[in-house]
Design a binder for these strands. Structure first.
Lengths: 224, 224, 224, 224
DNA sequence: CATGAATGAGATTTCATTCAT
DNA sequence: AATGAATGAAATCTCATTCAT
């Protein structure tokens, strides 16, 4: 005969799991998966080493469950439904907002992403599969839909490949973010993100070549 | 009395070091830094474990020295002097060549990059510093110079920020490459790089917005 | 005020103890003393781990109490009184019956005997003493009496040593049984026990040497 | 280039293995497989814990290899080519010699056998398989051949089943030995083995029933 | 009494590094 | 310089036992 209701018990167990995962994420972020020790994680969670194993079968399981419980909110906001833009200006505003959100999220979760990228390549295939579902995180599919709409509506080039463009666009900032925030952890150029982000969006939308000249080039058929 | 001349000896020692580093890179790539064992590396190099320590002080030193000796050639070709483009078309051709080279190099060294990204965040500060010099590998500084020239020559927008643009441009492909080639190892969209690369370059140079419309928008002062 | 009478309470407690010991015996039999876990035993007994400790002080106590409560019945049937045989034929029939009973019992309790032999040598002296009383299980003393009677009645060799014979006879089958049923758990020769048992008894009674030849040898005084 | 000849190295390694196995056998014998610790075994062998693993892959492997290297001599002498007996007398002499050897060996290795029987039932199937090959140690197959020859030569009953007889004969002494020497470690009857062994052989060869009477019984068809 | 989460000692195993040869 | 056996610290995981509820 249980002294606490099953519901209360489940809630309590869930809380403990969260508490452990949070500690694990902290430690993993600080030292990497292989260098973090279970004892350390337990201490960080305010438990004894053995207690961890009442909630997770192994150290690897800790890693596998971190995103599911911890990154879920991040993923959620990233994928929340966005109103389709009706013009190039609206598109620009939307892209700016998305880019700013991306920057903010990466910077906030830089430490976690560090673990993420470190551990991923060497996890067991099963664990990797679990992680994989998190990867489209960078929102390529959302972008693709938006670009496709823009082309149909005529405010984006009709010869733009939305599949490819949706995959190269995020990288403009993401790679920079990865290097600066996740890998090196130090500022690489003397600009803030509120300068970098608009510039990236402007390049994406209008290109590096001056409009007049570009128009001329296109008119004479020299541009591909 | 030395049997071999000091020079010959140095050469021999250099060769041995290269041989060990090559083996280490292979093993690190396959299993990650922490999971690779010194014994394994020694065997792969055709030596006994103990012998490694005649050439490197520790396992970490192996990692630290890999880029310097191994990535040097990669870096070299990337940075080899390129004739400055004199027009947008030449610029486009140059960017295409650079992008293709980048794709080829990342794909060739995917396994090594895997280690690189895995190990980097958790290395000792000293080791990290060593690595750092490799990071501009993606050629940002070269690009920056090229863009600056283009602006000065007038075939790139005069309000383009060459510092930022040089950092966001490589990411367009690099992030995609990282995810597809290094992290997941599986194709993510049904396009080959000979379609992806030109599209990325085209977007960078001419933007996603149609030229005519863009020109008009810019003329009415609503853009930028 | 007790809700139940002390007597009822004692009965209940006794039942619980039996229930736990039965579960322990099952698990010990399956995995051996050291590899069985208290949790496992508790689950098999339909209790939680902690509850075990309300009835037994430790895991070893479980083992110590198993024979007393559980092996008692086994032992009892094994030692039940047998009518003395009056002739060699009756003796043969009796030995056959005893042997068959032994085979049946060993096979039935193979799992229990497995624990028995595994744990015995390493128990605390006290625990071992408890077990020891089970050892004459193989009924040597009963046999000895029967053989002694047979010699006195003249249908067994007068120079037969009943003490020794009573100890070597059971082994003919027991050792085979131990190896085949308890230790390896697989059939070792292509004969069933209904062929093996009579053959063993026949050898015991009439020997391996042909009667005529034996008679001759004995007559010439060469045997002995 | 090895400093020591491969032969010398192999010899040295073999010696170390023996040294470790001897220590393992001692410790296993004292505490049983599960309660013995690798550290303990290492200390007993005069090594550090880790060193054990330079010679054996796991603790279980230690157990598995003990018989092979330790019981090898025992087995060897047991299986050494024996001249086939040409008469019942020679057969008797041979059986006596074999039985005496068996007694001597069991008594010498009583402690090891204790471990052997304790651990066997719970080993991994693979390990058990390895052991299995040792089990016919008690010489059943050798005996079987000898009995078969005896039957063919006519000095053993032609209706004797050599397969069964070869399996029940060793048990006559082995079971007694197991109980007295291995399990309880104390003398159970007031006879020495130099009385027990001949009596067992005599019973096996000539049976418990007096020859004359047996002959008569067989003649009247009441036996067998 | 029943429960089962918490505990932490202890066991096995790995592996970077040392060092005698 | 090369070797690889030896080392032992450290890591993961198990499980008997306790104890608050």
């Amino acid at each position: 005969m249980p002294r606490v209701s099953p519901a209360a018990k489940a809630r309590l167990e869930g809380a403990r799991r969260m508490q452990i995962l949070a500690a694990a994420a902290r430690i993993f972020a600080r030292k990497g998966f292989d260098r973090a020790t279970v004892t350390e994680i337990a201490r960080a969670a305010g438990l004894a080493e053995g207690s961890i194993y009442n909630y997770f079968r192994s150290k690897e399981e800790l890693l596998v469950h971190i995103p599911r419980q911890l990154a879920q909110p991040v993923l959620a906001t990233l994928l929340e439904p966005t109103p389709m833009p009706a013009s190039a200006e609206e598109m620009k505003a939307l892209l700016l907002r998305m880019a700013e959100a991306m920057v903010e999220r990466v910077r906030t979760h830089a430490k976690f992403l560090k673990v993420f990228f470190s551990a991923l390549p060497y996890l067991s295939p099963a664990a990797r599969e679990t992680y994989m579902q998190l990867l489209p995180v960078y929102g390529a599919s959302v972008l693709e839909r938006i670009l496709r709409d823009g082309i149909r509506a005529g405010y984006l080039r009709e010869d733009l490949n939305p599949v490819i463009a949706a995959r190269v666009l995020p990288g403009m900032l993401m790679f920079f973010l990865m290097v600066q925030e996740v890998l090196t952890g130090r500022r690489m150029i003397p600009y803030d993100y509120d300068e970098i982000v608009p510039e990236a969006v402007r390049v994406f939308l209008y290109g590096a070549v001056p409009r007049r000249r570009a128009a001329r080039l296109r008119a004479t058929g020299k541009v591909g």
